[in-house]
């Protein structure tokens, strides 16, 4: 979406996992790359907690470059969903590779978290 200007970008590299944040036009986008597993899920959680402000109202997790996730990573996403519900913020995920989408479906996460095909679709839906 062209109107989303990059105002702030931080990258945390932790082992084989990385999260890049972009905030603009009232939307926080968290792009997660690599593997989120039992060895680095805590860092993933810290990265998200540190980046999300209480004033954020729309958060999108872009998983296009996520290659692996286990229950440890799903737990972090669930905790993030709960945290965002408390501050009445909207949350969705987008651009899931097939294997990641399968894990979301097996876990039932597709029933509780909106999944969008692309970042622009996610932003359009959340701001509608």
């Amino acid at each position: 979406m062209a109107s989303v200007a990059t105002m702030e970008t931080t990258t945390e590299e932790t082992g084989a996992m990385g999260v890049t944040f972009e905030r603009g036009d009232g939307v926080l986008i968290a792009k997660t790359e690599g593997r989120v597993d039992g060895a680095n899920a805590r860092e993933f959680q810290t990265d998200l907690e540190d980046a999300i402000d209480e004033s954020d109202r729309v958060v999108v997790l872009d998983l296009e470059h996520l290659t692996y996730i286990s229950s440890a990573g799903l737990r972090v996403i669930l905790l993030t969903v709960k945290m965002l519900r408390k501050q009445e913020a909207m949350f969705s995920v987008c651009s899931l590779p097939d294997t990641i989408r399968e894990v979301f479906e097996i876990s039932g996460f597709d029933k509780i978290i909106p999944i969008h095909a692309s970042q622009s679709e996610a932003i359009a839906a959340l701001k509608a």
């Binding site: 229950s71 737990r75 669930l78």
Partner: peptide
């Protein structure tokens, strides 16, 4: 979601 237990997901 609010009641979801985090345990047992790995086995599932």
């Amino acid at each position: 979601l609010e009641d979801r237990a985090v345990g047992g997901l790995g086995i599932h």
